[in-house]
């Protein structure tokens, strides 16, 4: 795939979620402009990509449960709650910052 068919975005994990991603808090990833079906890639696509391709931890159901981001994990797109951005259907833009924060750890 030619490089112009891809773009970069920054993905961050915090609130303990980084533990599921080998301790990585921030990564820059390159994603295709269109998914396999020719649709613009969405946050929903990103979640599955992270779960299937990036996550090495076997405890996948602590990140994705029944096809959705686990309850108790907040998703911020460019610092805005993804509920304001159409949640999983939000179409990713170049240089977007997507932050996953777990609310479930420690007090």
């Amino acid at each position: 795939m030619a490089s112009e068919d891809k773009f970069n975005l920054v993905v961050e994990f915090s609130g303990g979620l980084e533990l599921l991603f080998s301790g990585r808090r921030k990564l820059t990833i390159s994603v295709p402009i269109k998914d396999n079906e020719g649709q613009a890639v969405t946050v929903g696509w990103l979640v599955h990509y992270l779960c299937n391709e990036v996550m090495e931890d076997s405890r996948k159901n602590m990140f994705v449960l029944d096809g959705h981001v686990c309850p108790g994990i907040l998703v911020l797109i460019n610092d805005a709650d993804w509920e304001l951005e159409g949640e999983a259907s939000y179409a990713l833009q170049p240089n977007d910052n997507v932050l996953f924060v777990s609310t479930l750890h420690g007090g």
Binding site: S14, G15, G16, L19, R59, M62, G72, L74, L76, D79, D81, L99, V101, S102, T103, L104, H105, G106
Partner: peptide, 29 residues
């Protein structure tokens, strides 16, 4: 709300610690 507490900490860039207690991993599930 726990959610707002996390968002407050995030937006105020508070320095907090997060890791699972070694002796009760996945206690939440």
């Amino acid at each position: 709300y726990e959610k707002e507490i996390v968002l407050y900490a995030h937006h105020k860039k508070l320095d907090y610690f997060t890791t699972e207690c070694l002796y009760s991993p996945e206690a939440f599930r």
